[in-house]
Design a protein around this nucleic acid. Sequence first.
DNA 1: ACCTGAACACCGTTCAAGT
DNA 2: ACCTGAACACCGTTCAAGT
Lengths: 226, 226
Amino acid sequence: MVKKAGSTQRREESLSRDRIIEASIALLDGSGERGLTFRALSERLATGPGAIYWHIDNKSDLLIAACDAIIASAMNAPSISAEPEAAIRALALGMFDAIDAHPWVGSALTRAPGQLPMVRILERIGQQVRALGVPEDAQWAAVSALLSYILGVSGQNAANAHIAREQGLDRSNFLDEVSTVWSELDPNEYPFTLSVAGLLRVHDDRVDFLAGIHLILRGIASAHGR
Amino acid sequence: MVKKAGSTQRREESLSRDRIIEASIALLDGSGERGLTFRALSERLATGPGAIYWHIDNKSDLLIAACDAIIASAMNAPSISAEPEAAIRALALGMFDAIDAHPWVGSALTRAPGQLPMVRILERIGQQVRALGVPEDAQWAAVSALLSYILGVSGQNAANAHIAREQGLDRSNFLDEVSTVWSELDPNEYPFTLSVAGLLRVHDDRVDFLAGIHLILRGIASAHGR
DNA sequence: ACCTGAACACCGTTCAAGT
DNA sequence: ACCTGAACACCGTTCAAGT
């Protein structure tokens, strides 16, 4: 478990990018995005804030690296299924669960377009869309629709978790509150919202998420071949 | 440029929630999310930071209110088309264009789940999904898929604009850079990403966005009736 | 009722100085 | 090469005091 040296062994490993990222994830998991500060980080690592800058460029770099660690492990789970639609569903669920466990990943992901974490997801989806037999010139549209949808849901989940934490509620209490507000809207102006206010209390995010994936896959299938 | 009085008429209106929101939008449009600070705001309004707190609760409240002003005007444009699919496309494009003009709206929206700005969008989509003849118990899935997708794209656009601004590039220079990085990825690990790297330079976000909407609408149609 | 502006408790980041 | 920690230039928010 030792990592660096200089002389011989020491109780704690010396500072390193990996150790910083690990500590960042712990902080983010423990207290959300607001929990990641250079002061908290340097305290946890028993060093000064300046030391961290020797290993990372800035806070944004740090957040992307932490995000990538989570995404990489979610995306590296080998897909059991050989059937592309099932593989896409599994992959999407893997993302959903990773973000459910680490809500801050949802917003970190959104803030790093084109960066490694997103490329990992893009690639996995892309390979399955190819396997699906989607013609080459339609692959990008299919993949980016799936990706945008996944990012959209991720961002919402992150925001829900963030607000719930801020208000000291758990997720279902928070949805209860939203549901109550919705059910008091003007029925002439907001008939649809009113009609789904009750659903908010009982719905299952994960099921809804899969339903959306299903809809997009169905659209892809109907657009090409069968 | 004088501001305050106490007696009769005055050149400028006195401070108000609306004036604060208006100034916030100007700040956000001009310098992005980082541009909205209570100091910049109070300078622009020729007052002290404390005065602003008389009219708004906190920064999050302010951001949601600014976001809502943009969304409200985008959603209040009456839809020309009576055909529900076309209306949904028009509505989605309205969102796309609003966020293109005010990129910060994309991330503000994501951070306010269940709040008024999102309810406005939800409602408009919901009414059209109903008009589409989707059975009642499938409406929520259809609407939330569309909404999540729109939010996902919005968030990405906001992030692209944010990063481009941060690096002093325009949007196409930024995409060029991403495209270059992607085209240097390992072909064994990232074959799909590599194959679409070139597309990034020439693609049209708006067209891609519509293609995604089209795919979801197609999925909805194929799932119900025809 | 509404505004002022100093003060508080934070931030991310830098940088001379140490080892 | 790597770490220290004080200092800088900011933040959002509060609150006594004013009108």
